[in-house]
Design a protein around this nucleic acid. Structure first.
Length: 885
DNA sequence: GCAAGGTC
C-alpha cells in the first residue's frame, strides 16, 4: 500500500520520516519544489506493510482572494466587497508544491496529514485534501495526532492515533480568513480613497505608495497606543499630601508609610497631620513575620522571550528573532539561506508561529548547545544566548527565600506601617541577574513598644500620567486571554505594520507614540458612534467566539459568515455615512489638499455603474455647478457619456441596491428626492430610481421638469469661481440676501425682507407680488389639490423660501404668509412649468418649445415630444386630458 | 495599492 504523508514544513517531514524509518533505508528525492523534498521508506502500520512517501507543504497552500472583477480598486464600490464572490486558489509560488502533491497522490491509496495540531493546521489539512482528492478521489484520509517530535510520540501517532480530520475546525479558519479579507479590503480602500488625496499628509511615506490600511489586528494594536496617548494627554496633575514618618535607631532606619496613602484635600491632610504632631508618640500595634518566596520565571516561550529582551535590552521583538539567525550566516551549508533571511530585499523573513506542540510541560525555548560564545557572535547575540541560558537555569532553580517583617504603628489614631526584608536564600536570583529583590533591614520592634519618630512631616506631591506604552506593554495587551490580537507568531507583524504605515513611532526606549495620522484615524472612528469601535479589540474577540461556535459545530460556517458580514457591512455603511467625521478628524491634523480626487467619490459610493460607452471607467453621480444632478463617465473628457437627471431633484444618493433589469450590471439605484412644488402632485417626492433605462417615472419626470444642460455651463462673470468649485460657495460674489450680483447683502435694497410691492400691478398681463422673505418676484401658479383645484396663488421662486399667498386673498387684502412645505401646498400649475420646473435649465435653453432631445439612460438622444400617457405629440403627460381617467 | 494566517 502506498501512503502519502504530508507535513506542514520540510523540517517536520524530514524529522518524522527519519523517526518512522528508524533512519534505515530512507531515500530522499527531489520534488517539484526545491525546498520540499520527498522521503521514501517502508513502514508497517498495524500489521499492514506500507510504502511511505513523505513530503511537505510550507504553511498554507492556498490563499483567499476576490474574483477578478473586484480585484482592482476602482472596479467596484468598496461596500460590494462584503458580498463580492471570493475564491481559494494556489498562488504562483506554491504551484510546484501542488504539482508534487498531485503527482504523488495519484499513486497512493492513503493520505496521512502530519500538520500542526492547531486550527491553522486543520485548515491546511483541507487544502491538501482538496488538491489530492481532485486527482485521486479514492484516497483514505487520516490525520496523525502528535504533539512533539520525539520517537515515542511519532510512532504512537502512526500506530494508534490516526484520526479523521475535523472540517468544523477548518471551517472556523475559513470564517476568519473571509472576514479578515472583506473588512480589510473594504475599509482600506474606503479610507485610503477618501483621505489620501484630500489632505497633505506629511509623513515619511512616499505619497504614491501610501495606503491607509485597516486590518482587524493592526487597527486595535494602534488603538492601544492611541488610547494610552490620550490617557496621558487627559491627565491633569493633581496635588496630594501625605504624612511621612521614619524612625532611626542604632539597628537601622524604618520608613513608615501612611495607611491612608495620599490625601487630595489639603485642609484634611493638615488637620490630621497636626493631630499627629501634637501627640507624636508611636505605639507598635502589630508585628507580622513570615518567610516569603520569590518564584523564578516560567519557561520562555516566543512572546515571553521577546518581551523580556525588549524590557532588559530594549531589543525590538523582530530583532530578537533575527539575532538568533544572524550568526548562522557563516555556516557552510545553510549560511547562504540565513543571509537571504536577513536581507530585507529578499523579504524572506517571517516570525515563528506558536505551533501546536505546546504541551504546557516542556520548556519551549532552552539552550540546545553549550557555548562559551563564538567568535562570530554579535553583542546582541551574546546577550540573547545568555538570557536564554540564564532564564532556563532560573526556571529549574529553587525560588529565592526572604524573611519579611511588617510593623504597624499608631500615632494619634493614624496607622502607619513599615516593611523590612532579609534575603535568606538567593537561589535562582544568583543566576538570573535581570531581576533583583532588594532587602531592607529595619530595626527590631516589640508589640506595644513606644517611640518617637525621628521624622514626621507633611509632604506634597503631584500625580503623574502613565508612561507611553512600551513594546512589552503592547505585547501584553495583545496577548490578553479575553481579546487576543493575532497569534504569537504574528503579534510583532502587526506592530511592524503599524510602524510601517506611519500610524505610530517607537522611540529609543521602545515606547510608542501615535503619529498625527494614527491619531486622526482612531479619532475619526471614535467620533462616529458606531455599533463597533473599530479600533478596539472587541470585534476580534467576538469573532474568536463565533469561530468557537463553528469549531464546536454549534453554528455552521455559512450562518456565522452571514451574521458577521451583515453587521460589518452595516458598520461600513455607518462609517461612510459619517465620513465627514473622519474628514473632520483628519482636518485637525492635516492641511486640506487642493488636489481633486475621483478616489473620494469612489470611496463614498457615488459610482452608479460601469460606463457602457467606453467600457473603461465608472459613471459617477455628480452635482454640477448649477446644482443639477447628472451621472457622468469618469473618463471625461475622453468619454462624454452622461445621463442628465430631472431638474426637480433636490437630493440624490447612490444606494447599494442594484437594478434587476438593466445590463450590464450592476447598476446601482439612486434614492431621489424631488422638490415637491416642481413635480406633478401624483408623483412621490421620494423615489428609488434607476438610470439604466428601465425607470418610467424617472423618464417622465425628466420630460416634465427638464434636465441639466448638455452644453457647457454658461459663461460666468468675473466674480464667479472658475476652479475649485467644490471648495467654493457657488454663490460667491452674489448677495446672500437676494442672490443678485452687484452688491453685498449688507447693502441689499431688499435686506429687510418685506413684501416689496404688495397689491397688484399689471405687468406682462400678470400681477406682480414679491416674496416677503427674499424680495424676489413671485410666480403665479394654479393649485391642483383636491381642495383648491384651479385656485391661483403666488409663490417664491427660491427653494429656500416658503412664501406663498392665494391670489384671491390678496384681492381681499389679507396679505401673504409663509408656510412650511408640509402643509397643504398648492401644486404647480402645469401651464406655468416654464417658470420654475425648468429654471435655468431646460427652460433656459428652450427644452419645452425648441426641438430638444433628452438623454436616455444609455446616453442616446431620444425625441422628447410625446405624451407618455396617451402618446399625443401635442402635449406632455402632465397636462394630458386623459390623465387620471 | 487592501487582511491575517501559514512557512522556505
Amino acid at each position: 500500500m502506498n501512503v502519502l504523508n504530508v507535513a506542514e514544513k520540510p523540517m517536520v517531514a524530514r524529522t518524522v520520516a527519519t523517526i518512522l524509518s528508524r533512519n534505515q533505508n530512507m531515500r530522499m528525492r527531489e520534488g517539484r519544489s526545491r525546498y520540499n523534498k520527498i522521503f521514501e521508506f517502508n513502514y508497517t502500520i498495524r500489521g499492514q506493510p506500507c510504502h511511505m512517501i513523505f513530503t511537505s507543504v510550507t504553511g498554507h497552500l492556498m490563499e483567499l482572494e476576490f474574483d477578478d472583477r473586484y480585484r482592482k480598486w476602482h472596479s467596484c464600490d468598496p461596500a460590494d466587497l462584503f458580498r463580492a464572490p471570493v475564491h481559494k486558489f494556489v498562488p504562483e509560488d506554491k504551484k510546484d508544491i501542488k504539482r508534487t502533491l498531485e503527482e504523488e497522490a495519484r499513486r497512493c491509496q492513503w493520505l496521512i496529514l502530519w500538520l500542526d495540531c492547531d486550527v491553522e493546521g486543520e485548515n491546511i489539512a483541507y487544502e491538501v485534501i482538496d488538491v489530492c482528492t481532485a486527482v485521486n478521489p479514492h484516497l483514505t484520509i487520516k490525520r496523525a495526532w502528535f504533539s512533539t517530535l520525539i520517537d515515542r510520540d511519532i510512532h504512537n501517532a502512526a500506530q494508534n492515533d490516526l484520526r479523521d480530520p475535523d472540517k468544523r475546525v477548518a471551517d472556523a479558519v475559513d470564517v476568519r480568513q473571509e472576514i479578515d479579507l472583506r473588512i480589510g479590503a473594504s475599509f482600506t480602500r474606503f479610507q485610503t480613497m477618501l483621505m489620501k488625496d484630500a489632505f497633505i499628509i506629511d509623513t515619511a511615506t512616499d505619497d504614491r505608495n501610501r495606503v491607509l490600511s485597516y486590518g482587524p489586528c493592526q487597527f486595535p494594536t494602534l488603538g492601544f497606543v492611541v488610547e494610552r496617548f490620550w490617557e496621558i494627554q487627559a491627565h491633569e496633575p493633581e496635588e496630594f499630601w501625605s504624612i511621612i514618618c521614619s524612625h532611626e535607631s542604632k539597628e537601622g532606619t524604618a520608613e513608615f508609610s501612611w495607611m491612608r496613602g495620599r490625601l487630595f484635600d489639603y485642609t484634611c491632610a493638615v488637620i490630621i497631620y497636626e493631630m499627629c504632631v501634637e501627640e507624636p508618640t508611636a505605639t507598635v500595634t502589630n508585628i507580622r513575620q513570615q518567610e516569603k518566596p520569590k518564584y523564578p520565571p516560567f519557561p520562555l516561550n516566543t512572546i515571553e522571550l521577546q518581551k523580556r529582551a525588549s524590557r532588559y535590552f530594549r531589543m525590538s521583538s523582530d530583532h530578537t528573532m533575527k539575532t538568533i539567525v544572524q550568526e548562522q550566516q557563516g555556516h557552510p551549508e545553510w549560511g547562504i539561506y540565513a543571509q537571504r533571511l536577513m536581507d530585507p530585499e529578499a523579504g524572506l523573513w517571517r516570525n515563528p508561529r506558536g505551533g501546536g506542540h505546546d504541551d504546557k510541560a516542556h520548556p519551549p525555548i532552552y539552550p540546545t548547545k553549550f557555548s562559551t560564545g563564538e567568535s562570530g557572535w554579535s553583542q546582541d547575540h551574546r546577550k540573547l544566548y545568555e538570557l536564554v541560558v540564564r532564564h532556563f537555569l532560573a526556571c529549574v532553580s529553587k525560588p529565592a527565600l526572604g524573611a519579611e517583617t511588617t510593623v504597624e504603628i499608631n500615632i494619634a489614631g493614624e496607622l502607619f506601617s513599615a516593611c523590612g526584608r532579609v534575603i535568606l536564600e538567593k537561589n535562582y536570583l544568583d543566576v538570573y541577574r535581570y531581576e533583583s529583590w532588594g532587602g531592607s533591614m529595619i530595626p527590631t520592634y516589640t508589640n506595644g513598644q513606644q517611640f518617637n519618630p525621628t521624622k514626621l512631616t507633611l509632604e506634597s506631591g503631584v500625580t503623574r500620567p502613565p508612561p507611553l506604552l512600551s513594546e512589552a506593554d503592547l505585547l501584553s495587551y495583545m496577548d490578553r486571554e479575553e481579546a487576543k490580537i493575532g497569534t504569537d507568531a504574528t503579534m510583532q507583524d502587526h506592530i511592524k505594520k503599524m510602524l510601517d504605515r506611519s500610524y505610530a513611532t517607537k522611540d529609543s526606549s521602545t515606547r510608542f507614540t501615535p503619529t498625527n495620522l494614527g491619531e486622526a484615524l482612531v479619532l475619526g472612528y471614535d467620533d462616529i458612534d458606531m455599533t463597533y469601535k473599530l479600533w478596539k479589540p472587541d470585534l476580534r474577540s467576538e469573532m474568536e467566539k463565533k469561530m468557537d461556535d463553528v469549531k464546536k459545530g454549534d453554528k455552521s460556517k455559512a450562518e456565522v459568515l452571514v451574521t458577521i458580514l451583515q453587521k460589518m457591512e452595516a458598520c461600513f455603511l455607518e462609517a461612510r455615512l459619517n465620513k465627514v467625521k473622519l474628514l473632520e478628524a483628519m482636518a485637525i491634523f492635516f492641511e486640506r489638499s487642493t488636489r481633486s480626487s475621483s478616489d473620494e467619490l469612489h470611496a463614498t459610493g457615488e459610482v452608479v455603474r460601469r460606463c457602457g460607452l467606453c467600457q473603461e471607467s465608472d459613471m459617477l453621480l455628480r452635482k454640477n455647478r448649477d446644482g443639477n444632478f447628472m451621472v457622468g463617465c469618469m473618463g471625461y473628457p475622453q468619454c462624454r457619456n452622461a445621463v442628465w437627471l430631472p431638474g426637480s431633484v433636490s437630493e440624490a444618493v447612490v444606494t447599494t441596491n442594484t437594478c434587476n433589469f438593466c445590463t450590464p450590471g450592476p447598476v446601482y439605484l439612486i434614492q431621489f428626492k424631488f422638490r415637491r412644488l416642481e413635480i406633478p402632485p401624483n408623483y412621490s417626492p421620494n423615489h428609488l430610481g434607476c438610470i439604466g433605462g428601465c425607470d418610467e417615472i424617472l423618464a417622465q419626470l425628466t420630460e416634465i421638469c427638464g434636465r441639466g444642460p448638455r452644453m457647457p455651463a454658461r459663461p460666468r462673470g468675473p466674480t464667479a469661481p472658475t476652479s475649485n468649485a467644490h471648495h467654493t460657495n457657488p454663490r460667491q460674489g452674489a448677495c446672500m440676501n437676494c442672490r443678485e450680483t452687484g452688491h453685498s447683502s449688507t447693502d441689499c435694497p431688499l435686506r429687510y425682507g418685506n413684501v416689496q410691492h404688495h397689491g397688484t400691478s399689471e405687468h406682462n398681463g400678470e400681477a406682480s407680488v414679491s416674496c416677503s422673505s427674499c424680495g424676489t418676484p413671485c410666480v403665479l401658479r394654479t393649485a391642483n389639490t383636491v381642495n383648491n383645484r384651479g385656485r391661483k396663488f403666488y409663490s417664491c421662486q427660491s427653494q429656500e423660501c416658503n412664501f406663498f399667498v392665494w391670489e384671491d386673498s390678496l384681492n381681499a387684502g389679507t396679505g401673504g404668509r409663509s408656510v412650511t412645505r408640509s402643509n397643504s401646498i398648492p401644486a404647480l400649475n402645469p401651464r406655468q412649468t416654464g417658470g420654475r420646473g425648468s429654471r435655468g435649465r431646460g427652460g433656459q435653453y428652450g427644452s419645452r418649445t425648441a426641438n430638444t432631445t433628452f438623454m436616455s439612460a444609455t446616453g442616446d438622444p431620444i425625441s422628447g415630444r410625446r405624451c407618455y400617457t396617451c402618446g399625443d405629440p401635442s402635449h406632455f403627460a402632465n397636462v394630458c386630458p386623459h390623465r387620471g381617467v
